[in-house]
């Protein structure tokens, strides 16, 4: 799906994640293909349960053993610079998580150690990424990074514990924690969803600055299409564990091909063309029909849709997983 993108940094192929449950295997990701180039921001959108967070966590394998007690199965391929991560040994994965791929999650409070000072946590991350760094240098870098993410009093913030900061400040600390490692890829999972709009605007601007300055690739997971339009180059729409449409933001927003994307976009108050409102709710992953998962909600459903839909390419590089995409 990369089209003619320069230098693919992270490449996901046929990624499948399933959990063993009492009601049988639950397929959370069903054959994901996704490429991200250096310096590129890809937004991953979808409703809750669509698998967007599962994909983000699977890339750093935080949803497979030992993080989930042996009942999760991850298969397919995740390559960083061509290096396969799925079969990589544990020590290699630790190094990748410490340095190459960083993650920022929605809930900053649970991402921080409550009994460790902010400065020490960031210094620790800096040393994990670069073992040659001295403790003093790590502390200095940590303080500078706290200033870089716009905390008003970085010296005080470095001495604070997480509970002493506001939600917006904690999210900045999370960004500092990620940025200090100078990762090649940042996975940002709803990093601003819990914030007020005014704070969100500032955190997004900061994130965009960090991304541009460092040239890192970013996978930005969100359900907010307004955020997507303002931060991403490309967008991937997820539904029931599959990517059902990808393309540039301009392509997908102005000319959605999949009826689901069209419905999501036209639910925006500012959308010009109004497709019919989406009816129903997300499907039950335990009882997915063999064909298109969106079929029960789709107004364009036809006989063919009971078979697995094909991935159709469009001029401009967009793709849609649909039997009868919109033209």
């Amino acid at each position: 799906m990369s089209g003619s993108m320069p230098e693919t940094l992270l490449s996901v192929r046929d990624l499948t994640l399933s959990f063993a449950t009492r009601m049988g295997p639950l397929k959370v990701l069903r054959g994901i293909d996704l490429d991200i180039a250096a310096n590129e921001v890809v937004a991953l959108v979808g409703e809750s349960g669509s698998g967007k967070s599962a994909l983000g966590k699977s890339i750093v394998q935080l949803l497979s053993p030992p993080f989930v007690d042996g009942r999760a199965t991850l298969s397919g391929s995740i390559r960083l610079h061509g290096e396969e991560l799925i079969t990589a040994p544990a020590h290699r994965l630790r190094a990748v998580r410490a340095r190459d791929i960083a993650m920022v999650s929605q809930d900053a409070l649970s991402g921080l150690n409550p009994v460790m000072r902010i400065g020490a946590q960031i210094a620790e991350a800096a040393q994990a990424a670069d073992p040659a760094l001295s403790a003093a240098a790590a502390r200095r870098d940590a303080r500078d990074m706290l200033a870089a993410v716009g905390l008003p009093d970085p010296d005080k913030a470095a001495r604070d514990y997480p509970h002493q900061l506001s939600g917006g400040q904690r999210q900045r600390v999370m960004l500092a924690l990620a940025a200090i490692r100078q990762p090649q890829v940042l996975i940002a999972d709803e990093p601003t969803t819990a914030l007020d709009v005014s704070v969100q605007a500032r955190v997004l601007a900061l994130l965009a600055d960090l991304q541009r300055q460092s040239g890192m690739a970013m996978l930005f997971i969100t359900h907010d299409l307004g955020v997507v339009a303002n931060i991403a180059h490309r967008v991937a729409v997820m539904y029931a564990g599959q990517i059902i449409e990808t393309g540039t933001v301009a392509e997908v927003f102005t000319r959605p091909r999949h009826p689901y994307s069209a419905g999501l976009i036209s639910a925006l108050p500012e959308a010009p063309a109004h497709h019919p409102r989406l009816a129903g709710g997300p499907p039950d992953l335990h009882n997915l029909a063999p064909g298109c998962a969106f079929m029960p909600r789709c107004r364009h459903a036809a006989m063919a849709c009971s078979q697995p839909p094909p991935l159709k390419p469009f001029p401009g590089g967009a793709h849609a997983l649909c039997w009868s995409p919109l033209s």
Partner: peptide
Amino acid sequence: PGNAGAMGTPAA
């Protein structure tokens, strides 16, 4: 091609 062009939010 492929650039939302608005990195950084409006009126930042």
